[in-house]
Nucleic acid binder design. Structure first.
Lengths: 219, 219
DNA sequence: GTATTTATTTCGTGC
DNA sequence: GCACGAAGTAAATAC
């Protein structure tokens, strides 16, 4: 990894065109040739970048970075170079995540009655023409229930659920009810769900996690 | 901006939990307190980060970064510090972009028959109660055609188009057809469009750009 | 200030 | 390898 702080201009031409006027910036060149241009603000996203793999030609006061897709990033050094260091970082063990939507789905698949009492899982990721239903269940009356799981329930999730119910009914699963299950269901999503005759419920993630990932036992 | 290269472990607790085992990494602390943790690969996105504004408490071998939302990033230095530099970057003039989607609409307005042969433009950004229709056209039979333009045609675009057609028919433009025009129309959007009796077409952006931005001449 | 839309999205996963 | 959905989406824009 090469770390440079210098005054420069940056030009990108590829999926769009973008230009940065002269200023002092941080430049990071990673092992795969990818380049990041960072300012001293603006969050984690670089002002400009090139994704690897790509080739950097160091012409001294101009860097010319290109990749196989025909994109090009040109960095022109117009002033002093404050820092220019190369360091060896070694292998990255990788990030371990916990608490994403997949985890929530896994837990609800094991405990469908946390969505609605009496619910029994029929199939996970049940395929329809407009995409897979997260959980397809049946209620005690034998009615099919499509469950759409989101970390955060918004309008788009309600519409997604509506499409699934529509498709399942076409597929002859009639009658079908739909339920949006999320850690938080925003007010607009609640309203739309009610207008569309769809259900919604908020899931207590910490409580659910406490129940464990395995199939629930009777005792 | 503070730039550090060191062996460390990183733990994030907030919207989810994420942990990084011991390894040598690049740490960047920006002026607003935000912190980026980068490996020597993996694109422009940091392995872990904290968005500003936030507060960094430097305890020597432990950094404790917190923000107002209750998120917390803990960086523990477990080995040598290879680099630790502070630099002043100054103001960022900002990025100038030239986008694609706006350009696509402009080009299709000039060449509506690239959407469908024989189409003639009536109005761009035609207002309805549920938002503006990108292009309102008429076909050779005098039928109104609402065109929704997207860089990438997805299900949301089909639903948007459906709402416009519905509104235009209410406004007395009967009959109205709808067409989704995009560089790429994904299969799910195609299916939904066909179910809803809406048209879709894929636009060759490079070809269209070759036709030029001006009104097409007869010669 | 809040909701919606975009992104050089990136990134993972299933077919 | 392509296609589709999620993201600690983030960031910009419309309202």
């Amino acid at each position: 990894m090469r770390i440079v702080v210098a005054t420069c201009t940056v030009d990108y031409a590829g999926r769009l065109s973008a230009a940065l006027p002269e200023a002092r910036r941080l430049l990071v060149v990673k092992a795969d040739g990818s380049v990041l241009v960072h300012a001293d603000a603006g969050g984690y996203k670089p002002l400009n970048w090139m994704s690897g793999p790509c080739v950097l030609v160091d012409g001294g006061d101009v860097w010319d970075v290109t990749n196989a897709k025909g994109e090009r990033l040109t960095i022109t050094f117009t002033g002093e170079v404050v820092l220019d260091t190369a360091v060896e970082l070694g292998a990255e063990p990788g990030l371990a995540k916990d608490g994403v939507e997949a985890h929530l789905q896994e837990l609800l698949a094991a405990h469908p009655d946390e969505v609605e009492p009496g619910l029994v899982l029929v199939r996970r990721e049940h395929a329809t023409a407009v995409g897979p239903v997260d959980l397809l269940c049946r209620d005690p009356d034998g009615c099919f229930v499509a469950v759409e799981i989101k970390r955060r329930g918004e309008i788009a999730g309600v519409e997604q659920l509506g499409r699934y119910v529509e498709m399942l009914e076409r597929d002859g699963h009639t009658p079908v009810r739909g339920v949006l299950a999320a850690q938080k269901v925003v007010p607009q999503a609640r309203t739309l769900a009610e207008v569309r005759a769809l259900g919604w419920t908020e899931i207590d993630y910490d409580r659910l996690r406490g129940l464990g990932a395995g199939t629930p036992t009777l005792f």
